[in-house]
Simulated assay, not measured.
Amino acid sequence: MANERSETAECGFTLLEMLVALSIISIAALTLVRLDAFAVRSAGDLDERTMAGIVAQNRAVELWTDPAPPTIGSNVSSVANAGRNWQIEQRVAPTADDSLLRIDLTVRPESGRGQATLTIIRPSR
């Protein structure tokens, strides 16, 4: 009967085992919280980049449909769209073909990190 447990033997976990288990669970929980915060921040950045791209496309359509070509050089303007203020940097340069202009647009929110760039080619006349 040496293999049988005695009636007085205690069953359960020791304090050290419980502390190790709680430490492992808390580390896993903290990792999940960090991943969740990263996902929320990434979604916000993606939203800003998407809206910046829409603002850039709107400006490109304005430039493409304007009968007068833009002047060569750089300028910065601001526009309100989707309840936010955006800064549009516009660079106009001639191309190897004198009848075409290259227009580079960079759109950034006035407060935030998202950005979009867009390049179009339009007739110079």
Rank of each mutant, 00 (worst) to 15 (best):
M1D: 10
A2V: 07
E4T: 06
R5A: 11
E7F: 11
E10N: 02
C11F: 15
T14I: 05
T14Q: 04
L15A: 11
M18I: 15
L19W: 05
A21L: 07
I27C: 13
L30W: 01
L30G: 15
L32F: 13
L32N: 08
L32Y: 08
R34V: 10
L35P: 04
A37Y: 05
A39M: 10
V40C: 11
G44D: 11
L46C: 05
D47H: 10
E48M: 00
R49W: 03
T50E: 06
I54A: 13
V55Q: 01
Q57S: 12
Q57M: 00
V61Q: 11
W64Y: 10
P67Y: 00
P67G: 03
T71E: 14
I72A: 12
S74M: 00
N75W: 13
N75P: 03
S77H: 05
S77K: 09
S78P: 06
G83W: 09
G83R: 04
R84Y: 10
R84A: 11
I88F: 01
E89K: 07
R91G: 06
T95M: 11
D97S: 14
S99T: 15
L101K: 00
I103Q: 00
D104L: 05
L105K: 06
V107L: 10
R108C: 06
R108T: 12
G114E: 01
A116H: 07
A116D: 02
T117C: 03
T117P: 05
T119N: 02
R122F: 08
R122S: 10
S124L: 04
